[in-house]
């Protein structure tokens, strides 16, 4: 049983003092899986593991205030997809690998409330976390899913006429509240002062207008270039149901096709925006 192993591992790590905190999944009420923070070995019973462990717990590792408050070593439970976020953070020197214990758990895909596998899990290729990356691995080894990247959802939008595409997105930009949930949930949005909030100079209109919102979403997407690992958290938390993954995946597609780059593969890899090839495509240049 996976959950049993998670609990014993957590208990062991806390007991032998190798970590002072475990971040994992607990339950808040029926059907409400939520992050839990365990400091007492006796509390490991609060941990759960099921197909509703949506939350990307890596978010906590890039939260400066959280890390400051929990100064000791942290044990963290991750799914295969979360591991990619962590690798990106490591490549950007945002996490001290020595101070975390990574407990990788096999994940066969999350389900929505209707019992369907999430779309992002359909697209996922790291069911089984990397052995040489995690400190502990729980769950049986599953063969890596080898499949062609499917970007048909993006192609669909790309194939629209320009005005239709504009309409499609403007429909969401008209409703976007600028609540910044998408930004706040993103494990890779760790700036001390977000560029969207800066006044001097003010890059992006702060008001929730179509113009301002469009700019906000372009900048958000641009800032995820070569970084977003499609964990889908932004889309999950968006109160107006904006298909944010369709934006992120556009970038993922371009980066893959043009720069032959996939984020979150390796903690040593450098952002494609800080690398170049002399023969990079330049068909857009006059």
């Amino acid at each position: 049983m996976i959950i049993k192993k998670i609990k014993t591992t957590a208990k062991d790590l806390l007991t032998d003092g190798s970590v002072s905190l475990i971040i994992g999944y607990g339950i808040n009420g029926p059907g409400d899986v939520t992050p839990v923070f365990i400091k007492d070995p006796d509390d490991v019973e609060k941990l759960v593991w099921n197909d509703q462990c949506y939350y990307n717990l890596i978010r906590y590792l890039s939260d400066r205030d959280f890390i400051e408050q929990n100064n000791g070593s942290i044990g963290i439970i991750i799914k295969g997809c979360d591991q990619k976020s962590l690798k990106v953070l490591l490549s950007e020197s945002q996490v001290n690998r020595d101070k975390i214990k990574v407990i990788g758990v096999t994940c066969k895909g999350l389900m929505d409330s209707d019992g369907n596998v999430l779309a992002k899990c359909e697209a996922c290729d790291v069911v089984y976390p990397d052995k040489d990356f995690c400190d502990v691995i729980i769950g049986e080894e599953v063969k890596k899913k080898e499949k062609e990247k499917d970007f048909s959802d993006i192609d669909e939008i790309d194939s629209m006429d320009l005005p239709d595409r504009k309409k499609f997105w403007d429909n969401f930009f008209e409703r976007c509240l600028r609540c910044y949930a998408c930004r706040n949930i993103c494990p890779l949005c760790y700036c001390k002062e977000c560029i969207m909030d800066q006044h001097n100079p003010q890059w992006v209109l702060p008001s929730a207008s179509v113009v301002g919102n469009r700019l906000f979403h372009i900048v958000r997407a641009y800032h995820l270039t070569g970084r977003c690992v499609d964990c889908g958290e932004c889309e999950r938390v968006c109160p107006i149901g904006m298909p944010l993954r369709k934006i992120n995946r556009k970038i993922i597609k371009v980066v893959k096709e043009r720069f032959d780059f996939e984020s979150g593969k390796d903690q040593e890899q450098k952002s494609p925006l800080t690398r170049y090839r002399e023969n990079d495509s330049e068909d857009f240049i006059i």
Binding site: E92, S93, Q94, Y190, C191, K192, Q198, S271, L273, T274
Partner: peptide, 21 residues
């Protein structure tokens, strides 16, 4: 310094090794 996160992107693109973390 208030804004810098130490991600190192600037270091990587500097052709003159003028930036360090």
């Amino acid at each position: 310094e208030v804004r810098c996160t130490g991600c190192g992107f600037c270091v990587d693109v500097c052709a003159y090794n003028a930036i360090e973390i």
